[in-house]
């Protein structure tokens, strides 16, 4: 589903800051991959680059999604292909309501894929149902997108979007950080209920604790812009005990 080959990237405004230095990653349909690593290792950058954030520049390498090169695509086109990024810091957009925003998102995707747009009635039904499932306060959802949301509420809102947009590949950028245990459970449940043999996950996280709830197929260690080790869930446990010091030169 996702092939990342020898990816090099730097900060667009300051090319001397190199963030990825030859990263390889291969995710098949239905797999859950977890990326761990120390701060500044490039985890979040990878998530953002895959979605096409303009503040980074790709200097070398290739990224394919379902056999199609995506590096020249704008973020919206990547979204239409079925990619999704849950933000570490969801952005506040004053005056825009979540309902309106998600409807527009689905409409844009339907249009790009020449599918029929979902009716307002049907959408509202799904929306309300998901809001309840994810456990978002229904007063909150009447407000502006992310404006005045607490950190945990913002993250839940990302899960809501994940569930409604229904992507093929969900990239979760430290969605678990800053959450209390109940919120963490809701988020993990959200992810687990979305797991299927058609959908893949790339979960960027700092802590092992999310992995108590979500069982990954693969764990990768990202240090210095490269994947330095890969393995199964036990690799995460090992990191939890011994940290990253073995990987840092």
């Amino acid at each position: 589903m996702l092939k990342v080959k020898n990816l090099h990237a730097c900060v667009a405004e300051n090319k001397s800051i190199k963030i990825l230095n030859g990263l390889d990653l291969y995710i098949r349909k239905g797999e859950v991959h977890v990326i761990m690593g120390p701060n500044g290792g490039g985890k979040s950058t990878l998530a953002n680059i895959l979605m096409g954030r303009p503040s980074y520049e790709i200097t070398n390498g290739e990224v394919e999604f379902n056999g199609k090169s995506i590096l020249d695509l704008a973020p919206d086109a990547r979204s239409h292909l079925g990619m999704f990024l849950a933000f570490q810091y969801p952005v506040e957009v004053p005056g825009v309501r979540p309902w309106q925003f998600l409807k527009a998102s689905l409409d844009a995707k339907a249009e790009a894929n020449r599918e029929k747009k979902i009716s307002v009635r049907e959408f509202t039904k799904i929306f309300n149902q998901k809001v309840e499932e994810v456990g978002i306060n229904s007063n909150l959802i009447k407000r502006s997108l992310n404006e005045g949301f607490s950190g945990g509420e913002k993250k839940r809102n990302e899960i809501l979007q994940l569930q409604i947009i229904n992507p093929l590949l969900a990239i979760m950028d430290e969605t678990d950080s800053g959450l209390d245990i109940d919120a963490l459970r809701i988020i993990s449940d959200g992810i687990n209920s979305m797991r299927s043999n058609q959908r893949s996950f790339l979960i960027v996280t700092h802590y092992q604790r999310l992995l108590n709830y979500v069982k990954p197929d693969f764990v990768h260690i990202l240090v210095g812009g490269m994947i330095v080790d890969s393995g199964g869930p036990d690799l995460a446990l090992k990191i939890e005990n011994s940290g990253y010091k073995d990987y840092i030169k």
Binding site: A74, P75, D76, S79, F87, V93, F101, L102, S105, A108
Partner: peptide
């Protein structure tokens, strides 16, 4: 970027914001 990552075109994203 946030809006575009959810599938809105740049113009639509601008309009919505």
């Amino acid at each position: 970027f946030y809006l575009m990552s959810r599938g809105l075109s740049e113009e639509e994203a601008h309009h919505m914001i």
